[in-house]
């Protein structure tokens, strides 16, 4: 009983910003489409078949990829702006500014991240972590590595105030 009370006291005394708990990524087949109408996920056998087929037939599903740094989420709940924020020990950091449909900054969102190179069919080489930034609505994505030149896709699974949506960004690595 005393231990419980002590724990409660400790928790209540903890001020400051705790980083949002990362969101669990849904399994590949359950995710929404994130490249046009295509459900891209490196672990998805169906995606791998589609990719192989596209290559054989010469169709290029990378034709109309949107590389904008400011994008709406798929369901319209959020709007995000992504920007380069330097490197830490050779790993890239990106800054994400997240707002809701009314333009207000979204604080305390739980965000999960997945991604990779759709044309190659492989996922991210590292597991980035997402931490709250210094300004409301700002998050930092740390520990990214674009290990090869080409088209990289990042899918952010966002949950805020019990509403979920997905936000994708595309990058061209040099």
């Amino acid at each position: 009983m005393r231990k419980l009370a002590a724990l409660a006291l400790l928790l209540s005394a903890c001020g400051g910003e705790t980083p949002p708990e990362p969101l669990k990524i849904p399994p590949a087949e359950a995710r929404p489409a994130n490249i046009g109408s295509i459900k891209w996920a490196p672990e998805s056998p169906r995606y791998q078949q589609m990719r192989t087929k596209a290559w054989r037939e010469g169709s290029d599903f990378a034709k109309n990829v949107d590389f904008s740094r400011e994008r709406p989420s798929r369901g319209g709940l959020f709007r995000g702006v992504i920007a380069d924020a330097g490197e830490i020990d050779g790993f890239r950091t990106l800054k994400l500014s997240l707002r809701d449909a009314q333009g207000a900054p979204v604080q305390g969102a739980r965000i999960g991240i997945s991604g990779g190179m759709p044309q190659h069919g492989h996922g991210l080489p590292t597991q980035p972590r997402i931490v709250a930034g210094t300004v409301p609505g700002e998050y930092r994505i740390e520990g990214l590595q674009f290990s090869m030149p080409g088209w990289w896709e990042l899918s952010l699974y966002i949950s805020s105030q019990r509403r979920d949506d997905t936000l994708s960004f595309n990058f061209k690595a040099g």
């Binding site: 020990d89 492989h122 996922g123 080489p125 590292t126 597991q127 972590r129 740390e142």
Partner: peptide, 15 residues
């Protein structure tokens, strides 16, 4: 004591 390679290792990835 910086170990970013281990810190950002993607454990258990199917790939």
């Amino acid at each position: 004591r910086a170990c970013p390679k281990l810190e950002f290792a993607r454990v258990g990835a199917a790939q």
